[in-house]
Amino acid sequence: MYAEERQQAIAELVQARGRASVNELAKDFAVTTETVRRDLSVLEVARIVRRVHGGAVRAASVVVTERGLDERDATQAREKERIARAALGLLPADGGSVLIDAGSSTGRFADLLPLDTRLAAFTHGVPIASRLAALPGVELHLLPGRVRTTTQAAVGSETVQAVENLRVDVAFLGANGISVEHGFSTPDPEEAAVKRAIVRAARRVVVLADSTKFGLDATVSFALLEDVDVVVTDAVTADLPLNVLRDAGIEVVIV
């Protein structure tokens, strides 16, 4: 495992557990305690964790670093699978329309759509469009724009304008961070602009997000809590309690 991969894995572990000791991390990753201390120093400089005596805890305010789609898809894979399956129950009736955001959770959702699905589907995610193209009952619309290498998502003014011309029954989105103060957020400004347009274009907005995203702030907010109708997740956490989500008018589906 390269240092960057180990540091990302350590960051995700600290985010999931809330804290981790140097000795635990050294054992988990089969490295020396000195290596772990160096990794934690790098992550602290990036404001991803906060060093404490003997280990590290979640930073109070985390700026989420952006990872490639393949790496994101491998993270929290079991939870994303359960979330995607539950989200299938939120599809509109046959003949309805959906807008599917680019991302790893929404990609799993597209993978699980039954072969007999009958929908008009719009997406700016290239891998998602490829999956939907195999479904004979889906009328597929791939939105235009410049494709980002990191996320394989079309972005830019052309994409935003295309979304703004739409009105769909349900939008399914992902998020890198969800918090009370910053709402739903993502690292890239161009992807945030597309997500913002998707939220406005849908009669019902559904966010698919595993619980490690709760309490995190990515760089750019694309929606307030009250802009979203449903959150499908594997658990709720102290960083974003269930009552806070419900008070914002959000239906929470826990799988």
Rank of each mutant, 00 (worst) to 15 (best):
S179E: 06
Q8F: 12
A86Q: 13
R146C: 05
S104G: 01
Q7E: 14
D116P: 04
T65G: 15
G183Q: 05
A162K: 06
P144Q: 08
K80S: 09
T186V: 14
D70S: 14
E191I: 05
S104P: 00
R17P: 08
R246N: 11
V199F: 04
T150R: 15
A93L: 12
L69W: 09
L112E: 11
I178T: 02
T159R: 00
R246W: 07
R146Y: 11
A133C: 06
A175E: 00
D234H: 02
F122C: 02
V205M: 03
V57R: 11
L143R: 04
T149L: 13
G145L: 03
R203T: 11
E71T: 14
R204L: 09
E12T: 05
V64H: 01
F122R: 03
R167Y: 06
E164F: 00
D94F: 01
L43C: 07
R72Q: 12
L240K: 07
S179C: 06
D239A: 15
T233Q: 00
R85I: 10
V163W: 00
L173C: 06
R38K: 12
T149F: 11
L40I: 06
I83F: 07
A223Y: 00
R167T: 13
I198Y: 09
L13Q: 13
E164D: 11
K213P: 05
L142H: 04
V22S: 03
I83A: 07
I250G: 03
Q15G: 10
D227H: 12
R78Q: 14
T149D: 15
D227M: 10
V244L: 08
P92C: 09
V22H: 01
A30N: 14
V207P: 00
V45R: 15
G95A: 09
E251Q: 14
G95L: 08
A248C: 00
D73Q: 13
A56D: 03
D227G: 11
V170Q: 08
D229W: 04
D70V: 14
Q161R: 15
T75D: 12
L216G: 04
T117W: 04
E81V: 13
G18Q: 05
E181D: 13
V138R: 06
A77V: 15
A192K: 04
L245E: 01
A16P: 00
A121G: 02
